[in-house]
Design a binder for these strands. Sequence first.
DNA 1: GTGAAAGCGCTAACAC
DNA 2: GTGTTAGCGCTTTCAC
Lengths: 349, 349
Amino acid sequence: MTKVNSPRRITIREVAAQAGVSAQTVSRVLNDHPDVAEHTRARVRAVIAQLGYLPNGIARSLVTQRSRLLGVVASGFQLFGPAQLLTGIEQQARELGWSVILQVADASTPQAYARVLAELAAQNVAGIIWAYPELHAERDRALRLRLQAPPIVFLSMAPQPGAATLNVDNRYGARLATEHLIARGYRHIGIITGPLTLWSAQQRMLGWQDALRANSRLPSERHVVEGDWTSAGGASCLRQLLKRIPKTDAVFVSNDQMALGALKAADQLGRRVPDDLGVVGFDDIPEAAFFKPALTTVRHDLLELGRLAVRELHRVYSGTPKRSTRNGHVARAPAATGGARERLTRHRR
Amino acid sequence: MTKVNSPRRITIREVAAQAGVSAQTVSRVLNDHPDVAEHTRARVRAVIAQLGYLPNGIARSLVTQRSRLLGVVASGFQLFGPAQLLTGIEQQARELGWSVILQVADASTPQAYARVLAELAAQNVAGIIWAYPELHAERDRALRLRLQAPPIVFLSMAPQPGAATLNVDNRYGARLATEHLIARGYRHIGIITGPLTLWSAQQRMLGWQDALRANSRLPSERHVVEGDWTSAGGASCLRQLLKRIPKTDAVFVSNDQMALGALKAADQLGRRVPDDLGVVGFDDIPEAAFFKPALTTVRHDLLELGRLAVRELHRVYSGTPKRSTRNGHVARAPAATGGARERLTRHRR
DNA sequence: GTGAAAGCGCTAACAC
DNA sequence: GTGTTAGCGCTTTCAC
């Protein structure tokens, strides 16, 4: 055990004293205010470096009523999608000089919702990215609560007037995937969906329906099996589907992890992919190219979506007046789709 | 576009006025101070609920010099390991009433290091979990900087006196994996490592050496290929290894994602797994059981490691006196290994 | 049991 | 250009 003395943090006043100026002048130097003589500025800078002074962001935030903190609410970060979103969010935030504070909602209850919001509001965050895709009804409440809360951008949720919502075009992507199967000559195309409480999962199902209808086929509920995003789920869903409708010769799987499970199940059932069974996934995770057989899948740019959300909040926040005069921000009409268009990726072999 | 008025946040004074008491009394109620009459407490609580008052954590933090913010420094959260750690950290933090603030270091430069630390110090974090596994040399600097910084726990780095370091037993796990290959009768066992700048990757290599030596075999550098944790890297490493030493009949791959790539490369080279080539991975990602063939791998409890790190910081922080009297915390001797023991997982088929 | 005063570290507003 | 004063929202200290 080593005892380490950690003396009080250096304050702006100590820097001022050491440099022989007022605290105000130090503050001006810190904030790159023009009205400081060059030699004064240099001297203050020298003292700051020498003392290793670090401005107290908390005090700053309190007086300016502004913050460089961004709240991110999600259900976790272990799945590919959320991890990708978080990565994009963090990147863009860093580039804008912001930091990210995390809130993982533990359950889909209104209480959890309120707790998360209170927690973030207490930290005086500049904005919130709501990437917890459930609680559709609760969102209204949030909008009302916003009287006390910072601007919020919702990700992967149904667009709704008055709420800023950002999405990739799940529906179009799913349609692409399904049309690929149709073009390859498959006749009986099922779908393994994500949890259908999620809007994005619903959208992918609609895209599958779109493709079938556009090709004069009737999508039926019997061809739909609801999965849970996991490989284990994907495997059991495929078994279920093939048992229910043995003549199924292709399946659109709503994410790549489930697709991996489906590939495994197909193999165990003696169905060769792609000869006996066509499989297309969604996400294009880096591993998809190394599945056996390599997975054809749809890529969407979740990274860019995250970045876009941050830029949107930054834009809104920058427009918000500071201090005393702050009286509201503008909630934009939903931006329908974010960033680049989805596209089909066929990995070789 | 919808214009939303967001009036100033309710303050403690407004609550006080409404309840007909002083701000002080409201503060006492907020902090569950005993010296408040029951009926006063009830009245204040009612006003708080009615007004939807949310205490300003920033102001609180400024005056108490304490915070419920935990800084996490990492290189990203897309790989399984970091995502798992973050999940554990966030869980435990939430259970203790703390929040997590993220810092992704963009490069391994001392400047980046200083920037990250300054950023977290500015937020007055209660502690820092340093899960960015490089910059071995820079760590010393951090310890000195700690004069200005909060307590730090280092994850997945070489233990060092005076620094709190937490690790899973990578070496033992790798030994387990390699011994499994030996027990199955493989003769020429290579290794695909992680980036060898990382301590954890080095440890896994040492574990592989341990197993070979314990079985009277001589590990040689020619059997070592350095990977980058990705499937693409794993595939090319295996090709390299088999080209260099064609009689190689087994390989320990230092993470499951690279192992997937190795499985793919083996297949493409016409080497059947496990008959012609034994493969064991590391991590036990949820997908490992669905690889083809299913991957035998080593599980370690990264989630618990993250939780442990938070508890350690919480313990240290709770022992730190508040306000005026704060003068240092105790840096513990390194806790060698965290949580549960690694174990080999053989997925069927 | 409750209130008044002081101040955490910083910046906005206004002097000079 | 630079300093002084006041105050962000809260808790601590010390009255009563």
